[in-house]
Design a protein around this nucleic acid. Structure first.
Lengths: 260, 260
DNA sequence: AAGTGGTCTAGACCACGTA
DNA sequence: ACGTGGTCTAGACCACTTC
C-alpha cells in the first residue's frame, strides 16, 4: 500500500529538518507552497505539518510561517540543588544560584495558598487524602522565558507547629533552614521523575507549543522517619534536564557545564 | 471572542474524561455522534478529538472507536537497579529481577553491534566524536508489551582490552561484574533524565500512540576517574517512572510498592 | 494591502474491526 | 454487512503579522 500523501509531506520535511536543510529556528515555506510541491490540497498539507508539530519538530502561529523548534537545555543538578538549599552558609535561593551560575537571569513569581492535598501528594506525605496543607508555589523564569513551576506542600500538622511556613512571602533563610532551626532536620529525599503531555493550564503557564511534553520531578523530604514536605517541579520539556550522581563521584571534578 | 467550535468539543470531552464520565479504558461515542451533539462538521469534530489525542488523553485506531488512555506506571528505582547490577551475589539480570519482583513477566530482545558513537555519547565518554564502539542493545517487554529500550556503549579502547564485551550474546555474570573481575571497578554513575516526543522509529518500536512522550535516562559510569560506559534507556512515557534517593534514607523501610 | 496560518463546511471514498 | 476511523478534495471566510 502507498504511504498516505500527508505522511509523505511529513516524512520529506522531517528529513529536511534532520539534515539541516531547515536548521533549528528557521522558517519554513508556506502551506500554499507545499500544496504546489506535493500536488496536495491545503488540508492534506496541514495534516502533514500537524504531524510534525505533534512530534515537537515545528511550531506554528497565526500570521507567521512555521518554524523549526530550537531546544535549549538547562541542566539542573538535583544533588547540588538540595545541598545548596541546606548547607550553603550564605542565604539565597538555590534556584537563583543555579541560574546565575549559568550566566542567566532568574526571576520568580511566588504565592502561598491553603489547599486540600491532591491524592498523590497526601499519599507521599502519609496523611489523609483531602486533608489541608500549605502550598508554596512559584513560577520560574530564565531570561524572561517561563521555565518551570515548583509546588511545595507542607502538611497541616507541620504548619501548626511552625507557622512561618504559612507566611505569604519568601522566608529569607529558606524553609529548609527555618525548619532545621526549629529541630526539624531533613535527612534525605525520595526523588521521582515522570513525563506526560501538559494540561492546558500548564501549557499556558509555561508557554508551551504543541508537541512539547513536561518533565515532572517529585521530591518527598523526610525528617528522621516521616515525610515533612512534598515538592513537585514541572519543567518545560524542551528546556530542561535533570541530573544526579550515584555512588562515589566526589573524586571527579565538575566535568560538565551546567548549561548546554 | 468566541472559543472555536473544535476547542469547545475538546474542552467538553476533556472535562468528561477528568470527571470520569469516560473513565480510563472506556470507549467514546463515534465522530458521527459528536457531529450531532455539537452541530459541527466531521472535520471540526476530528480536529477537537485530535487535540485531545495530542494531550495524550485519548487514542484512536481505524475500525474501532476512540478510547480513553490508561496510564499504568512501572516504577524503576535507579539506586537499587545499579546496586543489583553489581553487588547481588546471585547472577541474573537486574531488569528481569525488578520486573519479576513486581509480579510481572519480563522478556528481552538483545543484540550487539559495532557502531560509530553518536556525538552526545562520545562527549560523555570523553572520546573523539565518530570513534567506534560496541553497542549492546535490548528491547524490553513487560507481559509482552514493549516497555523500554536500553543502549549501552562501550568505547573501543575498553573493548580491545576486554573482548567479551563484543560477544553477540548475554554475558552471564553481567557486564559490570565481568569488567570488575578484570580490574575495572565502576565507582559511580552520572545520571541524566530528559523528555521529548518519540521519533517515528521509537514510536514504532515501543508501540506508542500519538501524544505520548518518551523519558530518556542516561547513565555514564566511571571507573576511578574516567568514563567506561554510557547507557541510554528510552522509556514509554505512559508506563514508566524513575526514582532515586538522596541523603540518608536507609533508616526507612521500603515504603512504596515498586509497581503502581 | 498582501501573505500567513486558523477555522469550518460538505461531500467522497477507503481500510479496518466486529458481528 | 455495517459501523468505525483514515484520507483527501475544493472552497470559503477570518485573524494575525509584516510591510
Amino acid at each position: 500500500m502507498n504511504t498516505p500523501l500527508y505522511l509523505q509531506v511529513a516524512d520529506a520535511l522531517r528529513a529536511e529538518i534532520n539534515d539541516r536543510t531547515f536548521p533549528p529556528g528557521a522558517g519554513l515555506p508556506s502551506e500554499r507552497e507545499f500544496m504546489d510541491r506535493f500536488n496536495a490540497s491545503r488540508n492534506t498539507v496541514r495534516n502533514g505539518l500537524k504531524k510534525l508539530a505533534g512530534e515537537g519538530l515545528i511550531t506554528s502561529s497565526q500570521g507567521r510561517s512555521y518554524r523549526v523548534v530550537e531546544r535549549q537545555v538547562f541542566t539542573l543538578n538535583t544533588s547540588r540543588f538540595e545541598n545548596l538549599q541546606f548547607s550553603n552558609p550564605e542565604a539565597g535561593d538555590s534556584y537563583d544560584n543555579e541560574v546565575l551560575q549559568a550566566g542567566r537571569e532568574p526571576r520568580q513569581e511566588f504565592r502561598v495558598q491553603l489547599v486540600e492535598l491532591p491524592e498523590e501528594v497526601a499519599e507521599r506525605l502519609g496523611v489523609e487524602p483531602r486533608s489541608s496543607a500549605v502550598l508554596r508555589y512559584c513560577l520560574r523564569y530564565v531570561d524572561d522565558t517561563p521555565w518551570s513551576t515548583q509546588a511545595t506542600y507542607y502538611p497541616k500538622w507541620l504548619v501548626d507547629d511552625h507557622p512561618r511556613l504559612a507566611e505569604p512571602r519568601d522566608i529569607e533563610e529558606g524553609t529548609t533552614r527555618y525548619l532545621a532551626s526549629r529541630g526539624i532536620d531533613q535527612i534525605g529525599t525520595l526523588n521521582e521523575a515522570e513525563v506526560r503531555m501538559p494540561s492546558p493550564v500548564e501549557s499556558r503557564e509555561l508557554d508551551m507549543g504543541t508537541g512539547v511534553p513536561v518533565l515532572i520531578w517529585t521530591r518527598t523530604a523526610y525528617a528522621s522517619d516521616h515525610p515533612v514536605r512534598c515538592t513537585i517541579s514541572t519543567f518545560h520539556g524542551n528546556l530542561n534536564r535533570l541530573t544526579w550522581e550515584q555512588g562515589d563521584l566526589n573524586a571527579l571534578g565538575q566535568t560538565e557545564e551546567p548549561l548546554r
